[in-house]
């Protein structure tokens, strides 16, 4: 899901940088009120966990591979704004040091896996918990939210890639950036996430939340 440089044209990557920048500012304003200094190590730990989690590639037999992101787990422990920042830090290091995801497309990747993946999953988690927050329900809601969040992120990624042939072309009429249309990008990316990587994310989120409820119950926001 890490979009490399060259797959998005300037309208798309520029537009997504322009959306991401004020959201980072808003996140920092929000955390100024809500994030205690004592929670900073947890933010650093969460960002590193997300970084490492994305190195565990799971295969679709004979096809491509993908990974979980930890976005929803982080949002449950740190709150969505801190999770968005933590994911953004992990994605920035991945792009700069390891060439995983591009520089021009960093805003897009932070919006997809960071913002959309975090907030869509976190909203579902809160909805599912309404009124009843037994441990069992929290674990199931966390898994479902993990599955949903990563798939929202994947769908956005597929759409951003798939609209490229529609909005820009070289003088000879051929695509200038990502050459695959929506009819290719959406099935190609969603197939893996709906069938395999979404469940990897769900399992990871549920197991991690179940462990935290037992070992560090104070860390789980109900």
């Amino acid at each position: 899901m890490h979009i490399p440089d060259g797959y998005l044209g300037p309208e798309t990557y520029g537009g997504l940088w322009a959306v991401a920048a004020p959201l980072w500012y808003w996140a920092s304003r929000n955390l100024k009120k809500t994030l205690a200094v004592s929670e900073v190590p947890l933010l650093a730990l969460g960002a590193a966990l997300s970084f490492i989690l994305m190195m565990f590639n799971f295969p679709i037999i004979g096809g491509t591979s993908g990974h979980a992101t930890g976005a929803v787990l982080l949002s449950i422990v740190l709150g969505p704004w801190a999770a968005f920042l933590a994911l953004s830090i992990a994605l920035t290091v991945q792009a700069l040091a390891f060439g995983d995801g591009g520089i021009t497309s960093l805003g897009a990747n932070c919006m997809n896996m960071g913002f959309a993946g975090v907030f869509s999953g976190y909203l579902l988690y809160r909805l599912l918990l309404k009124g009843n927050a037994s441990n069992r329900r929290i674990v199931i809601a966390a898994g479902a939210a993990g599955y949903f969040g990563i798939n929202v992120a994947a769908l956005l990624t597929a759409v951003e890639l798939g609209i490229q042939p529609l909005i820009s072309a070289a003088p000879d009429g051929r695509p200038l950036y990502n050459p695959f249309p929506l009819s290719v990008t959406v099935p190609a990316i969603m197939l893996g996430h709906l069938t395999v990587f979404g469940f990897v994310e769900a399992a990871f989120t549920s197991i991690a939340v179940a462990y935290l409820l037992k070992a560090h119950p104070g860390l789980i926001k109900r």
């Binding site: 996140a27 920092s28 955390l31 100024k32 009120k33 809500t34 994030l35 205690a36 200094v37 004592s38 929670e39 900073v40 190590p41 933010l43 650093a44 730990l45 969460g46 960002a47 590193a48 970084f51 490492i52 190195m55 920042l85 933590a86 830090i89 992990a90 920035t92 290091v93 991945q94 040091a97 390891f98």
Partner: peptide, 21 residues
């Protein structure tokens, strides 16, 4: 290497944005 980088940046950014108690 990546974990060390992310943790260091995480601490720096975290300290910058966190609420001053």
């Amino acid at each position: 290497i990546g974990s060390v980088l992310v943790v260091v940046i995480g601490f720096l950014v975290g300290r910058m944005v966190a609420r001053r108690d």
